[in-house]
Write a protein that binds this DNA or RNA. Structure first.
Length: 766
DNA sequence: GATTGTGCCCTTTTT
DNA sequence: GGGCACAATC
């Protein structure tokens, strides 16, 4: 008794007043509005630890997070606080993984087998594409990603395919967008998913809602099971997620949501900021706690971020403050090209490393799009700085990995059509395109899966010749023989057996290029991961005694579709500079942060300039980026950047101006470049060398490029541009900051330049 | 039916 | 600068 009290009070002493209040109010609806860096995760983990210490049954606690990584971290923190025997049994995970687990148990009520496959968005797009082709629709008009976006949006708002087609607002919108067939594609897509015993990401949430809505006994079971529901990153939940929580928590109303409307950055995938705003309406007797003290960043960073986010109209009022020191000013780096941007950033990191003796993992480089990593990466490599890229082409989406996983998937679920199509002729076994197409046509006619057709080759004798039938039969026999071994072999033994037996590695060995070697390494690391999994203890649900995870291949495969790169890093503590998108950086913090590519049309993205809501989401994203920094923030932009393989002019983002100038370090010297080197501005080794000599002072390479006053420019003049060389002005429009000139350059043709940024020197005035 | 070459998209952000 | 669809050839 006294020991428990001691531990409980011990827990509470490590919190500030508002955190403590949020932790001890364990009953009833609670909303915690937590500013960036205010110890939100701390409050949540301590709250759970506190409940467990007070004697709450860990099996009755459901904690939903946004990423697997966050769940894993939180769980290990809780286990540190209260011991692993209690902490281990809390239900903690992402919405998708928790409810996938539930659907494995209850899905039969909806007609799904226990071994259903989870299609990732890659699978979904392939399926949509083949449906679009079957309907003889133009895949450019009906681009798979757009169609999937529409379907996903519908499912996130709990619209079935039928609802979608019956809703005139939706159908009218599709009709005026010139895409009236999306509803039809939606229907066929769902039919085909069902036929493949598969669910896509959104189905996991949609079907959970159907279960809780249509099966009172299921609702009853989970309402009684989960007496406490906690949701992290509540601002990023969509309607389907919102309703699941609401339904499960309806009985006990012990629901605690944690969020920050200022950090809502996922509305593009259906997240609804209204969920946070409506919490008060849904639970009138709610308790609201605000965590406003930032423990992460310097005053400069906190105040700069506050100033930026203040420009958004839609937000819950709150004041984030810190009692840390002012710290260093924000540095602004201007580069003439994306390559130079990389060099400047790499040099800056190198400089800090040397002068302050910092490890590499004190630094993070954040960008808006994955495509930006390349130029940064090259610069870091030249500078000899080790780095790690998160995201991008994730490990699980590499072709060779997906191929092998395709075998595993088909072995587990024969009806998994995307897996079957992927591997039926890889490695090549003489089952060609025509055969596959005919099989698909027959399958669609009879509404059976391809597997059901080829499983009975005798029925196909009229359709195919003897040779083809034998090949199909061999394939079926092979897959079946693997399936038989699923019960007797460990995941690793079976995976290895399949890999050698279908000769994937042998096929890859044909290619001895570095990429080919890399592919074999990827296969090996997949097998290593499976081996590690096989050697772990099986996970048993102590409540029911059921094995939640066995060490079978099926067990391994259950979550694979829900894993991302970030969940998979073994060298988590390796000393490397971290590169990732801002989205991926949410929830993380680093002493030194670089936000790169802060340019109009890139950040904010050109696709988000349409509405205020979209622009405000971009601004929140910028806010998230700024608030990742603990000590020092550096922002960079380039004046030109390779996009679509050609150099494009860029101008600095409006977001830079939105930072109060008092927080920005004024450059000592203008960054400028030599005029008489038209197209070879900074690239590669030579410049890197120069810069290295100059340490972090890349700003004074040579004489400044003096530009002429833009209001002297007139049509007909011949001008020199620092990058595009000589050209003739053919048109001038606009005034002031928006004044633009069209210039016909000898080297690169017509360009429209914004005179505020383009440095033009008049060479000839006629 | 497989392999190689060419031209045409493209680019947000992720479970 | 890359991935993917289609065409041409073996």
């Amino acid at each position: 008794m006294s020991k428990i009290l001691l531990i409980v009070s011990d827990l509470l002493t490590q919190l500030n007043d508002s955190q403590r209040e949020a932790v001890v109010h364990t009953e009833g609806p609670v909303m915690i509005i937590a500013g960036a860096g205010s110890g939100k995760t701390r409050a949540l983990t301590y709250r759970i630890a506190y409940m467990l210490e007070k004697g709450v049954d860990p099996f009755s606690v459901l904690a939903l997070t946004f990423t697997n990584k966050a769940a894993k971290e939180m769980k290990s923190r809780i286990m540190e606080l209260v011991g692993s025997d209690k902490g281990r049994n809390v239900w903690m995970g992402t919405f998708h993984s928790i409810f996938a687990r539930m659907l494995r148990v209850e899905g039969h009520l909806l007609g799904y087998p226990q071994n259903f496959t989870i299609y990732d968005s890659d699978d979904s797009k392939r399926l949509i594409k083949s449906i679009t082709n079957e309907l003889s629709l133009d895949t450019k008009v009906y681009s798979p990603s757009y169609v999937l976006h529409r379907i996903s949006g519908a499912k996130s708002n709990l619209f079935s395919a039928q609802d979608y087609c019956n809703n005139t607002d939706i159908t009218n919108a599709d009709f005026s967008a010139g895409k009236p067939m999306i509803g039809e594609i939606f229907k066929m897509y769902n039919t085909r998913l069902k036929r493949a015993d598969a669910m896509d990401f959104d189905d996991l949430l949609f079907n959970t809602n159907v279960l809780l809505r249509d099966f009172p006994e299921v609702l009853y079971k989970y309402q009684h099971k989960f007496k406490y529901v906690l949701v992290d990153e509540y601002q990023d939940t969509n309607y389907a997620q919102y309703l699941i929580i609401k339904r499960i928590a309806a009985l006990n109303e012990n629901i605690c949501v944690v969020g920050d409307d200022a950090q809502s950055i996922y509305s593009f995938r259906g997240a609804n900021i209204q969920n946070i705003l409506n919490f008060k309406i849904d639970y009138p007797d709610n308790q609201l706690f605000r965590l406003e003290q930032n423990y992460r960043s310097t005053k400069t960073i906190v105040n700069a971020a506050n100033g930026v986010i203040a420009q958004n109209k839609d937000q819950i009022k709150k004041t984030v403050w810190t009692d840390k020191e002012n710290g260093e000013l924000i540095t602004l780096l201007r580069a003439s090209s994306d390559n130079e941007e990389g060099t400047l950033v790499a040099n800056s990191i190198f400089g800090f490393k040397m002068s302050k003796q910092l490890p590499n993992n004190s630094f993070a480089i954040l960008y808006r799009t994955n495509a930006q990593s390349r130029s940064i990466e090259e610069a870091l490599r030249r500078q000899g700085i080790p780095y790690k890229i998160f995201g991008g082409l994730s490990f699980y989406s590499r072709k060779e990995v997906k191929d092998l996983l395709g075998y595993f998937r088909l072995v587990i679920n024969h009806n998994d059509e995307e897996a079957l199509l992927r591997i039926i002729n890889y490695p090549a076994r003489g089952i060609g395109k025509t055969t596959i197409e005919r099989l698909q046509v027959i399958a669609n006619e009879q509404n059976r899966s391809i597997w059901e057709l080829i499983e009975h080759p005798l029925e196909l004798q009229q359709e195919f010749n003897k040779g083809v039938i034998i090949k199909l039969d061999d394939f079926v026999t092979k897959i079946k023989s693997f399936s038989v071994q699923m019960k007797t072999k460990t995941a690793f033994d079976l995976a290895r057996h399949i890999t050698t037996s279908v000769a994937i590695v042998a096929d890859l060995k044909e290619d001895d290029s570095p990429e080919g070697v890399q592919r074999i390494e990827n296969i090996e690391s997949l097998l290593n991961a499976i081996q590690e999994y096989s050697e772990k203890e099986p996970v048993i649900d102590e409540e029911t005694g059921e094995a939640i995870k066995e060490n079978t291949l099926q067990g391994f495969m259950q979550d694979v579709a829900l894993l991302t790169d970030a969940d998979n890093d073994k060298e988590e503590n390796a000393d490397r500079v971290v590169l990732m998108t801002i989205h991926a950086a949410k929830g993380l913090e680093f002493p030194y942060v670089y936000i790169v590519g802060v340019e109009e049309n890139l950040f904010p993205s050109i696709q988000s300039l349409g509405t205020r809501a979209e622009l405000e989401e971009e601004r929140r994203l910028f806010y998230v980026a700024i608030t990742r920094a603990e000590l020092k923030l550096t922002i960079s932009y380039a004046e030109s950047r390779f996009r679509w393989g050609t150099p494009t002019l860029c101008e600095p983002s409006r977001f830079i101006e939105e930072i109060d100038a008092a927080f920005i370090e004024q450059p000592r010297k203008k960054i400028s470049f030599q005029a008489n080197k038209p197209y070879s501005i900074p690239q590669t080794p030579k410049l890197a060398k120069n810069l290295k000599k100059l340490e972090i002072e890349p700003m004074s390479l040579s004489e400044p490029f003096e530009s002429s006053e833009s209001d002297k420019l007139e049509v007909g003049m011949t001008v020199l541009h620092q990058k595009f060389g000589q050209g003739r002005i053919t048109d001038i429009e606009g005034a002031g900051a928006n004044k633009k000139a069209t210039v016909a350059f000898a080297a690169v043709g017509n360009k429209q330049l914004i005179l505020k940024f383009a440095k033009l020197r008049i060479i000839n005035e006629n």
